[in-house]
Deep mutational scan, measured.
Amino acid sequence: NPITQSQFVPLGEVLCCAISDMNTAQIVVTQESLLERLMKHYPGIAIPSEDILYTTLGTLIKERKIYHTGEGYFIVTP
C-alpha cells in the first residue's frame, strides 16, 4: 500500500495566511472566526484546541508577525 504523504505546514504560518486573507476580505478576525476559517478553507488541517490557538497567536504577536486590537487580529505590514 502506498503511503499518502501530506505536507507539514506550521500552524503559525497557516494562521498568518488565514489572518491575511481575512484582513483583505475585511472580515473581523477573532479566535472564533479564525477557527471557522480554518475549518472551511483549510480542509485536512488538524484544528487546534483553543489553548494551542491562543498560545500560537501570542507567539506570533511576540514575533511581531501579527498584532491585536479591539477590532481583531491583523498582519503586521512592513
Rank of each mutant, 00 (worst) to 15 (best):
E36H: 06
R37P: 00
L57M: 06
G12P: 14
H41K: 10
F74Q: 14
E13N: 05
Q26W: 01
I45R: 07
S6I: 05
P2I: 15
E36C: 08
T30P: 00
C16L: 14
I19G: 00
N23S: 02
G70S: 09
G72W: 00
Q5C: 13
T56G: 03
I45E: 05
T56D: 01
H41V: 07
G72H: 01
S6P: 09
T56K: 05
L38T: 01
G72A: 07
I52G: 08
N23Y: 02
D21S: 07
L11I: 09
P2G: 03
S33N: 10
T56C: 15
E13Y: 02
Y54C: 14
L11V: 04
L11A: 02
T59R: 14
M39Q: 15
G58D: 07
I52L: 10
G58C: 15
L35K: 14
T4L: 09
E50T: 08
T77W: 04
Q26I: 01
D51W: 05
I45V: 12
Y67S: 07
Y54Q: 11
K62T: 08
V29D: 01
P10T: 14
S33C: 02
V9Y: 12
E32L: 03
E36K: 12
E13H: 05
T69M: 05
T4Q: 09
L35H: 08
S33P: 00
V14A: 11
G44H: 07
S49V: 03
E13R: 08
Y42A: 06
F74N: 07
A25F: 07
V9M: 12
G12E: 14
R37L: 04
I52M: 14
L34M: 03
D21N: 05
I27T: 06
A25M: 09
I66V: 11
I27V: 09
S49I: 04
N1G: 05
L57F: 02
G58M: 13
C16Q: 14
Q7E: 07
L15V: 13
R64T: 05
I61C: 10
G12V: 11
P43G: 06
S49R: 05
E71A: 09
P2V: 03
I66P: 00
P43N: 08
Q5G: 08
T77V: 07
P2N: 15
A25W: 03
V14D: 01
K65L: 06
S33V: 07
Q31D: 05
S20P: 05
K65S: 02
N23T: 04
L53N: 01
G58I: 07
P48R: 02
M39Y: 14
T24L: 10
S6W: 04
E36L: 09
I27A: 06
P43L: 03
F74V: 11
A25R: 13
Y73H: 03
L34T: 00
Q26K: 13
I27S: 04
K40N: 11
E63L: 07
V9E: 12
P2A: 02
R64L: 03
K40H: 11
R64S: 04
N23I: 01
I3E: 08
Y54M: 08
L38S: 00
L38P: 01
Y54I: 14
A18T: 10
T77I: 05
Y42N: 15
T4S: 13
Y42V: 08
G72Q: 10
G72F: 01
N1W: 03
E36M: 08
S49L: 03
T30R: 04
L34H: 00
K40C: 08
E50V: 11
P2L: 15
T69C: 09
L34C: 00
L35W: 05
S6D: 15
I45D: 09
E50F: 11
L53D: 00
T4I: 13
T30L: 00
G70N: 09
V29Y: 02
V28E: 13
V9K: 14
E13A: 05
S49H: 06
Y42E: 12
F8Q: 11
K65H: 09
S33Y: 02
N23C: 02
I3A: 13
A46N: 08
V9L: 12
E71V: 05
P48L: 07
L34P: 00
N1D: 14
A18K: 01
L38H: 00
G58N: 13
E36R: 10
L57T: 00
N23V: 01
I45L: 12
F74H: 09
G44K: 12
Y73V: 02
T30H: 01
L35D: 00
K65V: 06
E36F: 06
C16I: 15
T59G: 10
E50K: 15
A46G: 08
V14P: 01
E36W: 04
I47A: 07
M39S: 12
T4P: 10
P48C: 04
T55A: 11
P43F: 05
V28F: 05
N23F: 00
T69N: 07
T55N: 10
P78F: 03
E32V: 07
I27H: 04
K65T: 03
C16K: 12
A46Y: 06
L34W: 00
D51H: 06
Q31S: 10
F74C: 06
H41S: 12
G44Y: 06
G58W: 05
P78M: 02
V76G: 12
A46E: 09
K65F: 02
A25E: 15
E32I: 04
G58A: 11
G70Y: 12
A25L: 12
K40E: 12
T4F: 10
E63F: 03
E50R: 15
T56P: 03
Y73E: 04
I19V: 05
I52E: 13
Q5I: 08
C16D: 00
E50S: 10
G44F: 08
A18N: 04
Y73M: 03
A46S: 09
V28W: 03
T55F: 12
V28N: 09
T69A: 06
M39K: 14
E71F: 07
L38G: 01
I3F: 10
C16Y: 14
Y73S: 01
A18R: 02
K40I: 05
G58Q: 14
T24K: 10
I66K: 02
I61P: 00
D51M: 09
Y67P: 00
H68N: 10
I27K: 07
D51Q: 11
D21A: 09
E63A: 10
H68A: 11
G58R: 14
N23H: 02
E63C: 09
I66S: 01
I47K: 10
I47C: 12
R64P: 01
I47E: 05
T56Q: 05
I45Y: 12
S6K: 10
G58Y: 06
E36Y: 04
I52R: 09
I19T: 01
E13V: 05
E36G: 06
D51S: 10
D51A: 10
E13C: 03
Y54N: 14
L34Y: 01
I75W: 06
T56H: 13
T55H: 08
A25I: 01
L53V: 11
F74L: 04
A25H: 11
A46P: 15
V29E: 02
Q26M: 06
F8R: 10
C17E: 15
A18F: 09
V14Q: 15
E36I: 07
T77G: 12
I3T: 13
T77E: 14
V14N: 03
K62R: 10
Q7A: 14
S49D: 14
L15W: 02
L34A: 00
C16A: 06
T69D: 14
E71L: 05
T24A: 13
V28H: 13
Y42H: 12
I19M: 02
P10S: 14
Q26P: 01
H68S: 09
H41E: 08
I75L: 14
G58S: 11
G44W: 09
C16P: 02
K40Y: 08
Y67D: 06
I52F: 12
A46D: 11
Y42Q: 05
G12C: 10
L57C: 01
H68F: 13
T69F: 04
A46K: 05
M39G: 12
S6Y: 10
L15R: 01
T55Q: 14
I47P: 09
L35N: 07
Q31P: 15
L11Y: 06
P2M: 15
V76A: 12
Q5V: 11
V29N: 01
T30Q: 01
A46L: 09
L53C: 04
L35E: 04
